[in-house]
């Protein structure tokens, strides 16, 4: 999110405030800010966005299995449902931008999957960032950082979109991701 705004030297403080207080180096999960490069066309943004929504949805459904708390389960289910809605909106947008009418499975197979090649699966991704899945705090922190990526992607795409209607749909989805972040942070606050 920050790299796109001219920040060139960004460091994640590993271990966060805890490591700072105790002044020892620990090996914590890297749940900090991550960035991604942006140079996507409107069409590419939609494809990438669709993949991202799919990932978010998988992530939330996965996390839902990992928490016992009823309220947290409901929160993750709700977030997963909204991501599904976003996928539908994005597919509609793709048809509109490209002037095609692509069935969902064809779109996923021919466009989304190739675009996502070479990446990590959700499981590998989680392993790499190794959140403590017993810790709601870790799960929520990871979810917030993922939503922040999504928000950033949509916002940049909306700014770049030539057509006003494309831009407004992307902005709408961006705002929903922002709402998600706020919901997640409220939940974090309530836990504290």
């Amino acid at each position: 999110m920050m790299a796109g705004k001219g920040f060139t030297r960004i460091y994640n403080l590993s271990g966060g405030i805890k490591a700072w207080n105790s002044e020892v180096a620990v090996g914590p999960p890297e749940l900090g800010l991550e960035l991604f490069d942006g140079a996507e066309s409107a069409e590419q943004t939609i494809i990438v966005g669709y993949g991202l929504e799919q990932g978010l949805r998988e992530f939330y459904l996965d996390m839902q299995q990992n928490v016992d708390d009823k309220e947290a389960k409901e929160l993750f289910q709700m977030l997963a449902d909204i991501e599904l809605l976003h996928q539908k909106q994005l597919l509609k947008l793709y048809d509109q931008v490209t002037g095609t009418s692509m069935p969902e499975d064809t779109f996923e197979k021919e466009k989304v999957q190739p675009a996502m090649e070479g990446g990590l699966t959700t499981a590998q991704y989680l392993e790499r960032f190794s959140p403590d899945l017993e810790s709601k705090l870790d799960i929520l922190s990871l979810a917030i950082s993922i939503e922040a990526q999504a928000l950033d992607l949509y916002q940049r795409a909306a700014d770049k979109a030539d057509q006003e209607d494309v831009s407004s749909i992307l902005r709408h989805i961006a705002n929903e991701e922002r709402t998600h972040i706020n919901k997640l942070t409220q939940y974090l606050d309530a836990m504290a």
Binding site: N12, E23, V24, V26, E34, F36, G51, G55, M116, G119
Partner: peptide
Amino acid sequence: MLWKQFFTPVTSIDANQAKKLV
């Protein structure tokens, strides 16, 4: 879902490195 498209992890530094930076 494959994630490489979205995430380029930021450099992590520990507390000592951060203090050295200061």
